[in-house]
């Protein structure tokens, strides 16, 4: 653990510990991605941690679900994890990312339903 602990209040520390417990059972690749995501979200600085918690919760949920589906980290996050995190926090490029996610969603649905042959 790192700067997180020093900067977060005690209730946040507890919440954060719950995140870490969830992350600990992820496959190695997904766990590595989690570390990377935290690292990238951290410079969004100027926060007590509280407003970033739900964003982290969503990111962790995403990793958990994709791990359960057997999807690779790359499939979900793409090459640019820093850009992905900026978009998660609504920062630069968020709109572009959202458009990309929309396309990805519709494309994945079309591809997977096509594979079903229905």
């Amino acid at each position: 653990m790192n700067l997180w602990e020093t900067m977060t209040g005690s209730d946040l520390t507890r919440e954060y510990k719950a995140f870490e417990a969830r992350a600990a059972v992820l496959p190695a690749d997904h766990r590595a991605a989690w570390e990377e995501i935290k690292g990238h979200l951290f410079p969004y600085g100027d926060f007590t941690g509280r407003n970033l918690m739900p964003i982290l919760d969503g990111a962790l949920g995403l990793l958990e679900e994709t791990a359960a589906d057997g999807q690779t980290v790359h499939e979900v996050l793409g090459d640019d994890i820093a850009g992905f995190c900026a978009a998660l926090a609504g920062g630069r490029g968020a709109r572009t990312y959202r458009d990309r996610w929309r396309d990805q969603l519709n494309r994945n649905v079309a591809r997977k339903l096509g594979r079903l042959g229905g």
């Binding site: 679900e65 996610w101 990805q104 339903l113 229905g118």
Partner: peptide, 24 residues
């Protein structure tokens, strides 16, 4: 059914990224 499952999962992934309040 499989087609519903596929679409549900893709929707869920999308929503995790967008993060509307109360999602979880």
């Amino acid at each position: 059914p499989p087609d519903y499952q596929i679409v549900y999962k893709e929707i869920q992934k999308y929503l995790f990224k967008i993060g509307p309040i109360g999602l979880l």
